[in-house]
């Protein structure tokens, strides 16, 4: 008999259609717009609709997700922000598509270079989000951001990010990448302790 295949296919469709409602009723309104609901709909056990209703709810990004780089700024006890960046230029050298420009500066009196950059540009229409800048930065100053909602109407004005647009406080980085932040802070603390120890050892034989 012809048409058995069609009927089988329609049966599968009907089962899916019914399961949609069954799952919605089982979750009693908590299936949408809640973190558990999104996690359930992303899992393999889900039955029925698994669409992420994007503008209202967003799929959580993994911690290692990377988009456009950000520059980290330390906050001191007076509330002033200081760049971690020392404008060494390693990121600009390793950048495969060469999208980083750093404007260095020097002290007007002593004529020695100032470690903080005057300006820092990244053309996000060239950046390929590879994360090499963050990998190679010896000062943990440049990191990859999680923000992807960056669509603009004019690229020549809005898509060349300057230092002001790239800079984010360290607390923001600690929030988006807690594991990485904890690991890096432990390493930095260990290195600082080693430096103090070495200085003490150097001072001890002299006295």
């Amino acid at each position: 008999m012809y048409g058995i295949g069609v009927l089988k296919g329609m049966w599968v469709t009907l089962v899916h259609f019914i399961q949609t409602f069954v799952d919605d009723i089982k979750w009693a309104g908590k299936r949408y717009y809640t973190p558990e609901g999104i996690a359930h709909r992303s899992s393999k056990d889900t039955k029925g609709i698994f669409t992420v209703q994007y503008p209202e709810e967003k799929l959580p990004v993994p911690e290692e997700f990377r988009y456009i780089p950000i520059l980290l700024q330390e906050e001191d006890e007076h509330g002033n922000l200081h760049d971690r960046c020392t404008s060494c230029g390693i990121c600009a050298k390793v950048c495969p598509p060469q999208c980083i420009w750093i404007v260095r500066t020097e002290d007007p009196v002593t004529k020695r270079p100032v470690p903080e950059p005057v300006d820092f540009f990244i053309d996000v229409d060239i950046c390929m989000n590879c994360g090499y800048c963050a990998e190679y930065c010896p000062f943990d100053a440049i990191k990859m951001d999680h923000d992807y909602e960056l669509a603009t109407f004019d690229r020549h004005v809005q898509n060349i990010y300057n230092k002001e647009k790239l800079s984010k406080p360290v607390s923001y980085y600690a929030k988006i990448r807690p594991t990485n932040y904890a690991r890096e802070e432990a390493l930095r603390a260990a290195e600082a302790a080693k430096k103090v120890e070495a200085a003490a050892a150097k001072a001890a034989p002299a006295s």
């Binding site: 456009i68 229409d125 950046c127 989000n129 992807y148 960056l150 669509a151 109407f153 004019d154 690229r155």
Partner: peptide
């Protein structure tokens, strides 16, 4: 213009 390489679906 959407920056990103590639932009995620969202």
């Amino acid at each position: 213009y959407i920056p990103g390489c590639p932009p995620t679906p969202q």
